[in-house]
Design a protein around this nucleic acid. Structure first.
Lengths: 153, 153
DNA sequence: ATACCTGCAAATGTTTTGCGACTAA
DNA sequence: TTAGTCGCAAAACATTTGCAGGTAT
């Protein structure tokens, strides 16, 4: 079986999830939503709506920005995307389904970000919430500082 | 000695820090910057630039919005304020100096936020960074979910 | 059929910026 | 004296929305 960058099987799976979500909400699976989903899944890293729009425009100039914004919100609600806000003002999205949860180290000098995950911290976050009788749905943790390369300089 | 809400001594201290920062950067300690600093320190909780501007307007209608934005950024750089971005689009500021570091629990139902601090997590964050040869300058951790009151409902 | 969707352009809300007058050091 | 500041209004962004025509179910 030949597999492309992200693997055909995964895209299928994610399409299934979106389809199921749309059906549940009485929404429609349109051509645009498929184009946007595919483009989003083919991009690695953390992208803004505008950036994704610019990519989509190249092959599908008929898709509007507003639809990209609207669809990313749907992907987020469907659990396929995560919303991030680093230091800049724009909202960034990253894949969520089939990707392990992770947090970020963000370099203040060069802007590079590294994905990290620490199960011990996750566990303590859970306990911290319990102590406060708080039920966590999701969280965000970002460490800002200087990365290895920039320290060296 | 009579002490007001925040304590005269503290405001002095924070004024000193700002003065030192401005001097270091060859910036000036103006009347407006003093007005904005005082107003900011007298407000508890997390405030946006617009909200702070609205408060200042009451007693000092001559101060412009742009100056409030510009000054909050300076307070941030001087280490007197922290920038936060909850789920809404506007940037919020909170006091930083002389306040213990803390993170936030944010209720997705009612919007209530609670300040929390867990030294064990802080320590693990530090270790996580070290493992990645990353030097942390600051961090942000927010847990989103449902608060005690909203669970009860 | 009939919700729901779309692209467009206009509207919104937040933050930044250019500018001529002003002021702290 | 002279950088740095100020208030103002306009500009710049990111995002949302109203609408008239189009489309999935």
């Amino acid at each position: 079986m030949v597999i492309n960058i992200r693997g055909v099987m995964n895209i299928r799976k994610e399409e299934d999830i979106l389809t199921a979500y749309l059906k549940k909400k009485d929404l429609k699976f349109t051509e645009q939503r498929k184009i946007i989903l595919d483009a989003f899944l083919n991009v690695e890293s953390h992208i803004t709506a505008e950036e994704l729009y610019d990519i989509i425009k190249q092959n599908n100039p008929e898709v509007g920005v507003a639809t990209v914004y609207r669809t990313l919100k749907i992907l987020y609600e469907a659990g396929l995307a995560n919303e991030l806000q680093f230091s800049d003002k724009a909202t960034r999205y990253e894949h969520l389904f089939d990707h392990q949860h992770h947090d970020h180290l963000i370099c203040l000098k060069c802007g590079k970000y590294t994905e990290v995950c620490d199960p011990e911290i996750e566990e303590l976050q859970q306990k911290l919430a319990e102590r406060n009788k708080f039920q966590v749905i999701r969280h965000r943790m970002e460490l800002y500082g200087i990365c290895e390369n920039c320290i060296a300089k």
